[in-house]
Design a protein around this nucleic acid. Structure first.
Lengths: 343, 343
DNA sequence: TTGAAAGCGCTAACAT
DNA sequence: ATGTTAGCGCTTTCAA
């Protein structure tokens, strides 16, 4: 194993210069067909594999793309653990990267300075930011010459980065419309963070639009914030709901995990879903169809989102085009058993 | 941004040689305190960050650890998507690696040759194999000088690699014992793959042991294979169960996802959990406590498993010790609402 | 204690 | 078409 064969070995073996080998390997058309064959043969026989570290140093290109997650309590734990969502997306990202010869580095980021340093040191070719980071981070990022693709972030940064989003406004709209069509009037909206999260804002405006079209107004008492997208906070919120009688008969939650947590608490409190409450989630995670009752939700194709994000960053890296990409993916309503006509 | 400051710039600025700077940065005690301070000052003022690619090339150490997943249908999809389990573990791994200055590369592997090549090319310092891979892969891996830590693989490779496991046999035992204690006699066992999966075999022997101690025999009709750990296959199996009347009153499934899928199918078929069937899962994923009913399961601390695995690989890399580590983590039974006394 | 210089393995400008 | 050579940025041996 230790006997690493270098480009020099190949060159010697083929009776040519290292440069010639490099040319052949990099598709530089400077070598006669005859020697080319000889070189290729040597490569094969010696089982030569170029050392990517050396290539990186020389080309100043690492073929590594980093996927950054916000850090919570100094670890990816919460985000990763409670939100399936990201693993599905990473699958999509990995798939594309592997096909294109890039490797995928996973890292948490919170401190902008640390993050910037790390990017420089590691020499990554591109960055994918999944989720929402502290504002300062984005600001510093702008100074970066490395291409950045943002996933799930809004207008604020449109001018500075590529980004991939889904049609959250429409998602909020169709979810709410569905509930209205079922005859519900008092419909709650459960956000993660209404103030911090651009995504939630969008979903909320879809919710508002649907109500408005139905001639209704949003009502303060029907808006809730869970702080994050965990089951647990959904559950807590559900318990809270049980304590305060309300005229609501339906809820639209900004994520499936939240919706499922709420549903659980409500059920434990003796409420029946969908008889007492209709519930709609957002995302359509795998297990949302396996809950009891199965969850009506706004589906986004998360694997595909990963594919699109990875494709975008690779394109940004390889094309040197200066135009920013802004891709907005569509969503669709999946009606299952957590929603029903208002009694 | 482009103006990358190199070690030479620092040296010049401090009026010393690049070597001196390198010494200081690497804690080599060869520099007078006076110059050391001068160098440190220069580093700070120029905001110097060593280029890790160059360091890698020079030191022949990348400070990158790769986490390998088996590829299914050419993507991580299934494994990642349907099994939450891995995301929780990655959180643990990332946490430790970041603390120790390693970066985490994620990659799928199936073809052993490709995999080996990739490892060499990328110059990774260590490998973490999550899950079960084709036999050929392990065989080739042995030739590798790079340290490898296996997670969830058994005896077969004990002599060749470090590995982290949980006490699966005991898990199978306590799950079954719990069911027996509740008065169940006909207890089904649902495996992923009984033949291929060393984990399932262990869990199965725990199951057998409990039965044996209770003076019972395992019964062929009570053993099932789901093929993988997806909800979906659990669901299918549940549907199957509905079609074939059985005297079973309890089921122990080798993963939570499987258990939840089965539960769903059974519920849809009008069966009541735990009244008609008691169900026990394995893993204790976050959402297992949020199902209806919440799932009784064998808990393993997956985040911690990641922490332990990462710690082991780093130790293997840095200590050059030749003794193989074999760490077996404990499990515990979490009794929730999917199990009850036999009526 | 300090520094010059020879690598690490590859690429690319330049010369032949 | 092919080879020479000077980097890429850092480490480390060796000499001063």
């Amino acid at each position: 194993m230790g006997e690493k064969v270098t480009i020099r070995d190949v060159a010697k073996y083929a009776g040519v210069s290292p440069a010639a080998v490099s040319y052949v390997l990099n598709g530089v058309n400077k070598v006669s067909d005859e020697t080319k064959q000889r070189i290729l043969k040597a490569v094969k026989e010696l089982n030569y594999e170029p050392n990517l570290t050396a290539v990186s140093l020389s080309k100043k290109k690492s073929n590594i793309i980093a996927v950054m997650f916000p850090l919570i309590n100094d670890s990816l734990a919460t985000i990763f653990k409670d939100n399936h969502y990201y693993s599905e997306m990473i699958s999509g990202i990995e798939y594309v990267m592997r096909k294109h010869g890039y490797d995928l580095l996973i890292s948490g980021a919170n401190n902008p300075t640390e993050c910037m340093k790390w990017i420089q040191k590691r020499n990554v070719d591109g960055l994918l930011f999944l989720g929402v980071f502290p504002n300062r981070l984005y600001k510093e990022m702008k100074a970066l010459s490395t291409p950045v693709v943002l996933v799930d972030t809004y207008e604020k940064y449109e001018r500075d980065f590529h980004h991939i989003t889904v049609n959250d406004e429409n998602g909020g709209y169709i979810a709410t419309k569905h509930l209205l069509d079922l005859g519900h009037h008092a419909i709650g909206f459960v956000a993660h963070h209404l103030t911090d999260s651009p995504i939630d804002k969008k979903r909320f405006s879809g919710y508002e639009r649907a109500l408005r079209e139905a001639g209704m107004q949003t009502c303060k008492e029907h808006i809730f914030e869970a702080q994050d997208s965990s089951f647990e906070n959904g559950y807590k919120l559900g318990k809270e709901l049980l304590r305060h009688p309300t005229r609501m008969t339906a809820l639209f939650a900004s994520s499936d995990t939240l919706a499922l947590g709420i549903m659980k608490a409500l059920q434990e409190g003796g409420k029946r879903i969908p008889d007492d409450y209709s519930i709609v989630g957002f995302d359509d995670l795998t297990f949302s169809s396996y809950s009891s009752p199965s969850l009506t939700t706004v589906r986004q194709d998360v694997f595909n989102k990963g594919v699109v994000a990875a494709t975008a960053i690779i394109q940004a890296i390889e094309s040197h085009a200066t135009t920013l990409q802004h891709i907005n993916l569509s969503v669709e309503l999946i009606v299952r058993n957590s929603t029903a006509e208002k009694k």
